[in-house]
């Protein structure tokens, strides 16, 4: 699977970044080594244009993880999963469907980080709004968090329990399982391990989708704060 996106979306393991094209109007896309064909138009690319999504582990700075939490609580969209970090945000989830969804997420997240990983993932997966349901974005974030920590043992368990078929979510879950980071998340992970601007890196992640970026970041942050997952 490949996505034709603009530079506002940015590079990623499945993204072909092209500016000046209306991605919604792209008909046929063929990818060959060294070039792509877009509705018959040949566009070449060099090796340097190929994005490397793998994260190379570094030691994290606890103060930067704290900064990420503060920024996420301040900037995440109201209907994102940031209520898992700040319970006051549950006030935004008042309608029956929203309430049940939020309660389910709270229970699922507690199980994931409380020693009942499989059960927790099964509760969270596929839940919520959007083309990639919030629960799946969260689980992708959890897997990316595990890669950042270098604690990849539980990644297989999360993936196997989360994956349900061929949909778009499954592609993103597979990328997270394989440790292939979108550029903006990789940049954020980078700022967590050195003195850098966590705030602007997180803004990049929050700009991914309507609430997907925030949900992904919540999953990553909770994994980092819990220093991994007990299987």
């Amino acid at each position: 699977m490949a996505f034709v996106v603009g530079s506002d979306v940015g590079r990623g393991p499945c993204n072909i970044v092209l500016d000046g094209f209306d991605s919604e109007k792209v008909g046929a896309l063929t990818v060959r080594p060294g070039c792509i064909f877009l509705d018959g138009l040949r566009l070449g690319y060099g090796k340097e244009a190929v994005y490397e999504g793998r994260w190379r582990g570094r030691k994290l700075m606890p103060e930067n993880i704290l900064a990420m939490r503060a920024e996420l609580c301040a900037k995440a969209p109201v209907h994102s999963l940031a209520f898992l970090l700040e319970r006051e945000r549950l006030a935004y989830f008042r309608r029956p469907f929203d309430k049940v969804f939020a309660e389910r997420m709270v229970v699922g997240a507690a199980k994931i980080f409380g020693g009942e990983l499989r059960e927790g993932v099964r509760i969270v997966r596929g839940c919520g709004y959007g083309l990639t349901p919030s629960g799946d974005d969260f689980l992708a974030g959890v897997m990316y968090g595990l890669h950042v920590l270098g604690d990849t043992g539980p990644v297989d368990v999360v993936y196997k329990c989360a994956c349900r078929g061929e949909g778009l979510s499954s592609v993103f879950l597979k990328l997270a399982h394989d440790g292939l980071f979108p550029e903006k998340l990789k940049a954020l992970a980078g700022t967590l391990s050195r003195k850098g601007d966590v705030r602007s890196a997180l803004s990049g992640v929050l700009a991914m989708g309507a609430s997907s970026g925030a949900d992904l970041a919540v999953g990553t942050l909770m994994t980092l704060e819990n220093e991994g997952i007990r299987c």
């Binding site: 049940v100 839940c127 919520g128 709004y129 349901p133």
Partner: peptide, 16 residues
């Protein structure tokens, strides 16, 4: 509610 048709969302609709 307007949501994607995942099994889990169906469960939430049921409970709601």
């Amino acid at each position: 509610a307007v949501v994607m048709g995942t099994r889990e969302n169906r469960a939430i609709l049921e409970n709601a």
